[in-house]
Amino acid sequence: MNEFAKELKAENADWVSEVKEALGETTITVPREAIVEVCASLKTNHGFDMLADLCGADRGPEEDPRFEVNYHLFSTKHHSRLRLKVILSEDDPHVNTVSGVWKTANWHERETYDLVGVIFDNHPDLRRILLPSDFDGHALRKDYPLRGYEPYSLT
């Protein structure tokens, strides 16, 4: 098992619900209540000072739980990478923001909210970022049609 996963589990057993290693990458599934604490701990104690990427994914409307949010952590000190995963159900797609831990999470979370529709609680400025504010629906959901609901017209 990855050393960071081990240390994390030793720190608090509730923080790690699953560890998966595949293709040279480690994925730690974290319960959504603990994500901010886990991130803060990884940042301060384990040197993961950069959030390289944050992205949401939709598994499809028939799946339950439906959404997942992936946090790709990177350390500028020891150059290792780690993926945290939070799994969310369709009825309650809420997770706490990590923009307090890394400021870069701000736009990533706005993008995830815009395209996937995951709501980040306590986010300082949760608005649409890529699509116009009157856009209907969340484009990256599997049940959103590729061409949208209607062709574009100015009027």
Binding site: D53, W107, E111
Partner: peptide, 14 residues
């Protein structure tokens, strides 16, 4: 199933 690009410009602009 999902492809996400982490564009450097996107983050740098922030």
């Amino acid at each position: 199933e999902r492809v996400h690009f982490r564009g450097p410009s996107f983050v740098n602009l922030q």
